[in-house]
Design a protein around this nucleic acid. Structure first.
Length: 519
RNA sequence: GCGCUGAUAGUCUAGUCUGGUAGGACUCCAGCCUUCCAAGCUGGCUGCCCGGGUUCAAAUCCCGGUCGGCGCACCA
């Protein structure tokens, strides 16, 4: 009961906090908002771009084995036919008009009641059968209404003539762009197995009920990559040894099927592999790499992250095995990232539908080796979900001198400003000196904010709230000794140091942040 | 999509039962004062989710919708 209340308060608090500080607002707010769609404000867009930049840098630019891709949002309709999304995204439904008002899968209803196959029936045909056979609601016996199709993909019309031939879909995932563009990538670049193709981009899913602020939305940016191997070598992962000693939190299938099971068990990924908890070594490897990235680059509390394996029953139509990295939100453990083993399913589907050869060839001593590459891992994560997690994890309320201090303890590399510069007093000499330092830090590549509004304490609090890790204050002594005061967001500590050493100091403080946080 | 529940300024909230010109706190802006942690004083901006109905009169009552929260369902 009180948990529900806390939960509600926390979610609404974070939503209000995000709106108040310029992180995110409801879209079309003045018209009452649109469910499942959000706008990012001046502070939010900075944090979001930094998360995205960090991801792209770490998973594309700084890796020798992953290349980038950026596919079209409105995608060739055949792509979704081949991928299976058109059929698995579209369900025929029928609603009970009696007491219970429940909706039922129309195809399942007919199959169960009439013992027939429905593959060759269209919606109308199925609806006619319901009337002809006088079927009623299996739940309450009530009358059934008109059948409808429910499609989770948004569609639109390409060109001025609107008919079924011009229907195209807004992509519900980036992966299919990578698969359908795979031939072009291997023909135009010199990638070698194993390798990945990464994409960050907006996807659209017409979710039934968007919930929980940025968590479940209808339009969001998905950052994901497909990692391909030779299907004969899916477990040859030489880099696994580099991470074998890393600790991870495992929530196994057995745990999920056991009542009162613990949230997770900590072990090294090497042990988890030995215990055969994972089916694929590369998948285990990418899970650890991703987990480390969330901890060290996103600054997320490691104790609130765990690996959860999907149950057989919840696997997607294309997946052999899927693992989620879950975060312990106030509303429960929920998926932050998903990592599916998609096998050769997608490339084979596209090969079948397009008649294009989606094979990779390698030559070695024994000759030419040709194969349809195997996707061992697809780490896929929503940018907005990371932003929400970073904020929820970093949001702190402290009491300082009997007053509430709200501070966003996020990784300095994700903060909307690297540093803020304040003149202690509104005296012209101090202001111009502060301006000078402000401009200097900008030319040095920092994202800097200048603030001379209100009292000094108010300025510190304002920047605490949006996560600015460091504030630099210029006072009357600065004019004489060329020293400033640097103030730390997390501890409120202040140190005085020469302007000359400021750039170096700020760089060190930023990179040492997590080491300091752990002590 | 169904059920329950709610919506008053940027934020928190009083007023709704019992219809009669919407009040406070914080924030924000300007000025004064102060000058290293949301200090003080003065002034100011901004609000009854939207659309109908009832009524002399609607934030308040009724109907429809939108948006939020929770549960169910859904979850490639």
């Amino acid at each position: 009961m009180s948990i529900d209340k806390d939960l509600k308060q926390f979610l609404e608090k974070i939503t209000a906090f995000a709106s108040r500080t310029g992180i995110a607002y409801r879209t079309g707010d003045i018209y009452g908002g649109l469910a499942g769609f959000w706008d990012y404000g001046p502070i939010g867009v900075e944090i979001k771009n930094r998360i995205k930049d960090t991801w792209w840098t770490d998973f594309v630019r700084n890796r020798d084995d992953i290349v980038g891709y950026d596919g079209a949002i409105i995608t060739h309709p055949k792509v979704w036919e081949a991928s299976g999304h058109l059929s698995s995204f579209t369900d025929p439904l029928i609603f009970c008009q009696g007491k219970c008002k429940k909706k039922h899968r129309l195809d399942h209803l007919l199959e169960d009641n009439l013992k027939i196959h429905t593959e060759n029936l269209d919606l109308e045909g199925m609806g006619d059968l319901v009337i002809k056979e006088e079927l009623s609601c299996p739940e309450c016996g009530g009358k059934l209404g008109k059948p409808i199709t429910f499609n989770l993909m948004f569609n639109t019309q390409v060109g001025p003539v609107q008919d079924s031939a011009s229907t195209a879909y807004l992509r519900p995932e980036n992966a299919q762009l990578i698969f359908s563009g795979f031939r072009n990538v291997i023909d135009s670049t010199r990638v070698k197995m194993p390798f990945g193709i990464a994409q960050s981009g907006i996807v659209f899913r017409n979710e039934i009920s968007p919930r929980n602020f940025l968590f479940r939305v209808r339009e969001y940016e998905l950052m994901e990559f497909e990692y391909f191997t030779d299907p004969q070598k899916t477990n040859e992962c030489p880099v696994f040894d580099d991470v074998a000693h890393n600790m991870v939190n495992i929530h196994s299938r057995t745990d999920q099927e056991t009542e009162d099971a613990v949230d997770y068990t900590s072990m090294t990924i090497g042990d988890a592999w030995e215990k055969k908890i994972f089916k694929n070594k590369w998948q285990a490897y990418w899970m650890v790499i991703s987990n480390e990235w969330f901890i060290h680059k996103m600054g997320i509390n490691p104790d609130k992250l765990r690996f959860r394996q999907h149950l057989e029953s919840e696997l997607s139509h294309y997946a052999l095995d899927t693992w989620d990295i879950e975060y312990q939100y106030k509303f429960g453990w929920k998926e932050l990232m998903g990592c599916a083993n998609r096998t050769q399913y997608d490339l084979e589907q596209h090969q079948k539908h397009s008649k294009a050869k989606l094979q990779f060839s390698e030559t070695d001593k024994s000759g030419v080796n040709r194969f349809v590459p195997y996707v061992v891992a697809e780490p896929s994560v929503g940018l907005g979900r990371i932003l929400l997690t970073v904020i929820a994890d970093g949001y702190q309320e402290e009491t300082v001198k009997d007053r509430k201090r709200v501070v966003l303890k996020i990784h300095p590399r994700l903060a909307p400003y690297d540093v803020a510069v304040f003149p202690l007093q509104k005296k012209p000499q101090i202001i111009s000196k502060a301006q000078e330092i402000f401009k200097y830090l900008r030319t040095e590549g920092f994202i800097v904010n200048f603030d001379d509004g209100g009292s000094i304490g108010k300025r510190y609090r304002r920047h605490d709230e949006i996560g600015t890790p460091f504030c630099v204050t210029v006072d009357f002594e600065t004019l004489e000794d060329e020293k400033i005061t640097i103030r730390h967001r997390d501890t409120m500590e202040q140190t005085r140091l020469p302007i000359k050493g400021l750039v170096e100091e700020l760089k060190n403080l930023g990179s040492n942040y997590l080491a300091a946080k752990r002590i």
